[in-house]
C-alpha cells in the first residue's frame, strides 16, 4: 500500500512541475509539450489510483485517456498549424479574410 502512495505522490509532484513549465512557456510549443507530458502522467495517475483504491476499473479510464491524449495533441497542433480544424477550409477562410469572396455574401 505504501508504495502506491509514494508513487502517486511522485506522479503528482511531476504533474505540478510540468504545469509550471506549461505556465512559464515561453513558446507555444513548450506549452503543448508540457500538456502532452501532463497527459502521460495522468494515465499513470489513473492506474495508480485504481490500484490504491482497489478498483481496477480505473484502468479502462486510463486506456481511454491514453487514446484521447494522443488525439488531443495532434488536434491542437493541427489547429495552430492551419488556424482551422479542416485544411480544406483554409483556402475559403483566407479568401474571406482578403475580401475575395466573389459576392458570395450577397446571396
Amino acid at each position: 500500500m505504501i508504495m502506491y502512495v509514494a508513487a502517486t505522490i511522485a506522479v503528482i509532484v511531476a504533474i505540478v512541475i510540468a504545469l509550471a513549465r506549461a505556465i512559464l512557456g515561453p513558446s507555444l510549443y513548450d506549452r503543448v509539450l508540457a500538456g502532452n507530458a501532463v497527459g502521460t502522467k495522468t494515465i499513470l495517475l489513473l492506474g495508480l489510483m485504481g490500484f490504491l483504491t482497489g478498483r481496477p476499473e480505473f484502468l479502462d479510464i486510463a486506456l481511454l485517456y491514453a487514446l484521447m491524449n494522443f488525439i488531443a495533441t495532434i488536434a491542437i497542433l493541427k489547429f495552430f498549424g492551419y488556424r482551422t480544424m479542416s485544411p480544406q477550409m483554409r483556402d475559403i477562410s483566407s479568401r474571406l479574410r482578403n475580401g475575395h469572396n466573389d459576392g458570395g455574401a450577397d446571396g
Binding site: 511531476a14 504533474i15 512541475i17 510540468a18 513549465r21 509539450l33 507530458a37 502522467k41
Partner: peptide
Amino acid sequence: VITGALGLL
C-alpha cells in the same frame, strides 16, 4: 517520472 519533469523545467 520526476527526472523527466525536472528536465522539462
